[in-house]
Structure formats: structure tokens, C-alpha cells
């Protein structure tokens, strides 16, 4: 049977999908680097190199047919793609295009579509934990069997907003999964200067919530672990703090040469690259053939190239379009005072 589960409840087709999303994440980011170097990306560029399994595997554990919603961080491009964000939306965001999802108002992957199941982050670290409390409260109040998932970094977990949010979610027993991404660093700050706990999952005990931990570079393990937390949440079991151990293999953003990380550390993590590892596992286990993977690679390249070609030369928004939509009413900011000058 083609769709019988082969590992972690995943069928062959699903295993191929996981590969597709990880490959799409990496290829899209590589394309963005090229555009950044051509100064076509207006602001900074953030990579998730080495963290694709963390993003993709965790998002894949949600149920899109039931309306689960996640809130990503800057290194969760893969999570956004899994939930249905498209390469052209991401490209338009980075290039500040008028036709982008936020029409040039917000940058990078800061955009939402609650129908597709993603609520874009804002820059203030930790804030999305309280906000996702409210989203999951709405599920609870309406008796909907939906689950929310929110990402926090090892750095973001030091914020007051994270603490207030996880505590609130725990007390309210909200159907919320919190993914703690332990990628070693917050900008230049190593985790040891961020917290005195050995593992981020250790913090769960202080909030009275369930804890899980997984190898963040093993997409199947990430999926399986997150899936358990998602099912717990859906069954009314409340919050789980899931720690995914991975590594940020690029600087904080493209401008950062990561001088504070040793070559040895980078090499060690490169050897654990989540995509290379998954390719080996897929082929050695007979879950995919090299030819099948090559077909996926070609499809990904085609999709990314097509998206770039379609929006690269699009215009930026008109200046005066900045004035609309601060409020539902009034619909636009006052221009009269400016005209009177």
C-alpha cells in the first residue's frame, strides 16, 4: 500500500512532503541571499540554515484540516511554508513590494493568514506567547478541537512576556504547544548567559506544564515529538514545552559574520545537517529513491525561479498609501494639516 505508514505514522508521500518543505525553505533562502547581494532585499535577511527540520517537522505535526494555527519566529520560514505561505509572498515581503501581503508595511516573514493557519510574529520577542494564549482561548471558548503552536528562541525565553504567557496558558490549560528552539545563540549571546538551566525543557516544571525534548535536526523526531504535544493539547491536556536542540549555522542576520562561533562548532553541526541526514535516511531506508528526490529538487528550483521572475520587477507601494488603515474608522490618517502647510 502506497500510503501505509512507514515511520512515526508517516506514509511515503508524507515523508516526501517533509523533504519538499525543507528543500523549499533552503532553496528559497539561498535565492533570497542572491537577491540580498544584488540589494534587492530592502532590509535584513535572516537564515534558518541548519534549522529547517525544526521548523518543518514541528509545523507538519499540526492539522491543517482542523484549523490549527501557529505563530512563527524569524527562523521559521519552513513552518510558514508548511502552513501554506507561498514563495512569492515571502519574496514580495523581503523586497517590500506593493502587492506583498502587507503592502510594504512589514518586513520579511512578518505576515499572517489566519485561514491558512499562521499568525505572523512582530519583532518584540516573547510577545507572541501571550497573543497565542488569546488565539487558543478562542478555540476553548468556542469548544473547537483546534490547537495553537508558538515558537520561542533560547533568547526570547528570557523575556517577561514569555514568562507571563506560558504561566497564563498553563493556568488556563490552553491547547497550546510552545516550541523552544535551542539553537545555541541569541544574536551573539550563548545560552549559558541567557539562563542557568541546562536544558530549556527544564523550565516546564516551574510552570507545571508537560515537557518534551527532541533532536531538532531529525525531522522525523521533531514531527513525532511535536505530534505528541499537539495531541495532548487537542485532548484537553494543556500546554507542552517542546525543546528542539539544533544550531544556528549562520549569523544572526546576513550582516553578521558570526565571529563569536568557532569553526569546530560550525563543522560539527554541518556534519549533522538536517537535510543531508534526512536524504541519507530516506534513501537507506528505501523510503525514497535518488530519482524521486531529484524530481522534488527540480520542482523546488522551478517554483522558486518562477516566483522570483514573477515579482522581481514589481513596484514598491505609493508613498501616500501609508496613511490608510491605522483604524477601521477613521479609515485614513489626517492629511489636511500637512496640506495647509
Amino acid at each position: 500500500m502506497a500510503d501505509a505508514p512507514v515511520v512515526a505514522g508517516l506514509a511515503r508521500g508524507q515523508l516526501h512532503e517533509l523533504y519538499y518543505w525543507m528543500r523549499l525553505t533552503r532553496t528559497l533562502e539561498e535565492k533570497l541571499v542572491a537577491l540580498y547581494r544584488q540589494t534587492k532585499v530592502v532590509g535584513g535577511l535572516f537564515r534558518s540554515l541548519g534549522q529547517e527540520a525544526d521548523a518543518v517537522g514541528s509545523a507538519y505535526a499540526l492539522d491543517r484540516t482542523r484549523g490549527d494555527i501557529l505563530s512563527p519566529l524569524i527562523r521559521n520560514l519552513g513552518s510558514m511554508l508548511v502552513q501554506g505561505a507561498t514563495p512569492i509572498e515571502v519574496l514580495r515581503q523581503y523586497m517590500a513590494k506593493a502587492d506583498g501581503p502587507t503592502h510594504g508595511r512589514e518586513l520579511n516573514i512578518h505576515f499572517n493568514d489566519l485561514d491558512r493557519g499562521f499568525l505572523g510574529q512582530t519583532s518584540h520577542l516573547g510577545d507572541m506567547v501571550p497573543v497565542m494564549c488569546g488565539v487558543t482561548m478562542s478555540f476553548k471558548l468556542r469548544r473547537e478541537p483546534r490547537v495553537g503552536l508558538v515558537y520561542v528562541g533560547d533568547g526570547a525565553m528570557s523575556t517577561g512576556a514569555f514568562h507571563e504567557g506560558i504561566n497564563f496558558a498553563a493556568v488556563q490549560r490552553l491547547p497550546l504547544v510552545i516550541i523552544a528552539e535551542n539553537n545555541g545563540y541569541a544574536y551573539s549571546t550563548p545560552m549559558a548567559k541567557q539562563t542557568a538551566v541546562r536544558f530549556l525543557a527544564d523550565k516546564a516544571a516551574g510552570y507545571g506544564v508537560a515537557a518534551e525534548q527532541a533532536d531538532g535536526n531529525d525531522v522525523v523526531a521533531v514531527y513525532e515529538t511535536t505530534r505528541r504535544a499537539v495531541e495532548r493539547a487537542r485532548a484537553g491536556g494543556g500546554v507542552t514545552l517542546v525543546e528542539l536542540i539544533t544550531f544556528r549555522r549562520k549569523g544572526h542576520a546576513e550582516h553578521d559574520n558570526q565571529s563569536y562561533v568557532t569553526r569546530e562548532e560550525l563543522d560539527a553541526w554541518e556534519a549533522r545537517d538536517p537535510i543531508d541526514r534526512y536524504v541519507r535516511r530516506l534513501t537507506e531506508s528505501g523510503w525514497a529513491t535518488a530519482a524521486e528526490l531529484a524530481t522534488i529538487d527540480a520542482r523546488v528550483s522551478g517554483e522558486v525561479d518562477q516566483a522570483v521572475a514573477a515579482c522581481e520587477n514589481e513596484p514598491l507601494p505609493e508613498g501616500a498609501s501609508a496613511l490608510t488603515g491605522v483604524f477601521a474608522d477613521p479609515p485614513a490618517a489626517d492629511l489636511e494639516w500637512y496640506r495647509r502647510l
Partner: peptide
């Protein structure tokens, strides 16, 4: 206060 005002926003979005 941050938690419940943030949660209010999330519920309002929904």
C-alpha cells in the same frame, strides 16, 4: 498585564 492584554489581542483576532 502583558499576558492578558496580549491574550485579548489574540482572542480579538479570532
Amino acid at each position: 498585564e502583558t499576558a492578558f492584554i496580549g491574550a485579548a489581542a489574540g482572542a480579538a483576532h479570532m
